[in-house]
Write a protein that binds this DNA or RNA. Structure first.
Lengths: 344, 344
DNA sequence: CTGTTAGCGCTTTCAT
DNA sequence: ATGAAAGCGCTAACAG
């Protein structure tokens, strides 16, 4: 520990400034500097000012790795979504950001690509960062992923859907009921010959729940879908357009077509335009989600508004409301709204 | 340090299993267990197997907070994007994921909402997690944000745009040239009376660069835009529709309209449909980006394809290629392609 | 209001 | 091929 005559004690400041540098410059102990930086504990205004000045002077950026390790709490919220290429999840994420704003929590986002195995590895990777909470889409987890989430004692919000019992908190809407409400609405408008155009149910179980909810209502009236077509892949405008063309070519003569979501339905609208059919007059078209584009169409798309932003925000708020998992699970229904529109 | 008679030494395993638990179960030291878990250093096959079994048995998930702190390197890549509500950035993010796949790096995403001050605070928050690299959209940073990125010695990719000199690596396309190429293409098709429908340039400087590139080409022919309309807010389909209506009502009689991007252009297409105009015959419409929806329209949208996925992937690859910032800055041009389409 | 002490869980040297 | 010791940078507990 002997001082080198050339070096006044400092052990080569090879990296970024540390809390110790701030403390030294401000003439206080590290812990006092730490308290000022974090804004916790009693510190006199004068010391606070000196420390803040020192922070500015050296350009101190706290190392949260060390902070989180020392306090065993990371202020991180893991968010695992199936995809970001889908605007719906981007809006959920905006809601999460909004719900977390000002709380000091930071979201860390992972994408599962609709694959439970990929989700498991994302969850595992996130748990390694010791998040205080996790927000995951849906209930379809692998057993190990579920175990990881169930252990850890962190808050877990399962979002989008409330048709299954959650681990901790569920935030979303009942897709079964949304499908049923859609069918009821269309029956009330006089439609009787229902067609369905969807996409891959393995990727999107919620779409299947909506279908089943609708089918149940139809069955109660002694009806069933007269024509059904599902694309292999994910929902796209192109797929919706192609599938509606195929559905109409295939017979059954539906008077209304329910689409798995708005992307598909917009494709359906485009097919009608190209085929010289007037949506809402020659054929009813009905979507799901209430995306912006539906409102911009020459005729406003008839659809169900899901409150994506609200789902994200509610989930974030729910998990930061209590640091520990409550004894009873909680279900937050963010609801849905039928948007009559002009295409059905 | 005296052992409590009731407690055989272990200080209450209140949390998740630690590396020490794995090591104890496998009958090795912590460091050996660590080597196996990380896959580094020489370890005999037999020991490796025992440790792996122990990992499985106790359900060990490494604490990367501690790992990163000890090794002063986090395997985190900070990604700061203006928005995720825009599919373009979602695709960039997919590219980043793809470029990072298998490298062990993990992206941490932040959103700036097109606000440099918000970007600064996101950058600051990210730096606190000691990322090895940062990927940020554009060059418009506050001075402190730029300083943070410039210091730290980490790799920094500035993406989307290559019209400005980067700090380290730039990955994207020249929006100026894309605008110029668009104007040239439309001139070659015989259009002479150019209109422009755009959105807020403060939020999207790249849109302005495209406009200016086009205007330069027009000027070289002694031409200029005959009508220009810009929405106040962000680009939306609705805004595109409304602004085209306003533009056409305002006179100038353009024979072609360049839109700031595809979202706006799709709105333009919708306006034409509602107004009984045939895009590509009665009025040329031209977008930017090459989104999926443009291809699904009754008439394929004429546009410029920007390679968003490639931008993300190239940026990720560039920053993991070398751990240190090279002496010379690097520019990666991901190019663009004119998609003739059917609307211009 | 401020400081001292002892870690957080892991990985880096060195040894062996 | 394996291990012992010494931190990484910060913060929770106590003290004063």
């Amino acid at each position: 520990m002997a001082s080198d005559p050339d070096d006044p004690g400092r052990p080569a400041p090879r990296g970024a400034p540390l809390l110790a540098d701030v403390a030294r410059l401000a003439g206080v102990s590290e812990i006092t500097a730490s308290r000022v930086v974090r804004g916790t504990g009693r510190v006199s205004a004068a010391t606070r000012a000196r420390v803040m000045a020192a922070v500015e002077a050296v350009g101190y950026v706290p190392n949260r790795l060390a902070g989180a390790l020392a306090s065993s709490g990371s202020m991180l919220v893991g968010v695992v979504l199936p995809s970001l290429a889908n605007i719906v999840f981007a809006e959920v994420l905006r809601g999460i950001h909004a719900g977390l704003a000002g709380s000091g929590f930071q979201p860390v986002v992972g994408v599962s690509d609709y694959d439970p195995a990929a989700e498991e590895s994302v969850v595992r990777a996130m748990m390694a960062w010791q998040p205080r909470a996790m927000i995951v889409a849906g209930f379809e987890h692998t057993a190990p992923a579920r175990d990881l989430l169930a252990a850890g004692g962190l808050r877990v919000a399962e979002i989008m859907d409330i048709d299954t019992a959650p681990l901790d908190v569920a935030v979303g809407l009942s897709h079964d009921r949304a499908g049923a409400a859609t069918a009821q609405h269309l029956l009330a408008k006089g439609y009787r010959r229902f067609g369905y155009v969807g996409h891959d149910w393995a990727r999107d179980v919620r779409a299947r729940h909506r279908f089943e909810g609708a089918r149940r209502v139809l069955a109660a009236q002694g009806l069933d879908f007269v024509a059904v077509r599902r694309a292999e892949g994910p929902s796209t405008v192109q797929a919706g357009r192609a599938m509606l063309a195929a559905l109409l070519a295939g017979g059954g003569e539906p008077d209304v077509v329910m689409f798995s979501n708005d992307d598909m339905a917009v494709g359906g609208v485009f097919h009608c335009m190209a085929a010289g059919l007037e949506p809402g007059r020659d054929l009813g078209l009905f979507g799901f989600n209430g995306l912006e584009i539906g409102d911009a169409l020459p005729r406003r798309l008839s659809t169900v508004r899901s409150n994506r932003f609200l789902i994200g925000r509610s989930a974030a708020e729910a998990i930061i409301a209590a640091p520990r998992r409550p004894a009873a699970v909680q279900v937050i229904d963010t609801g849905f709204t039928i948007e009559p529109g002009e295409t059905a």
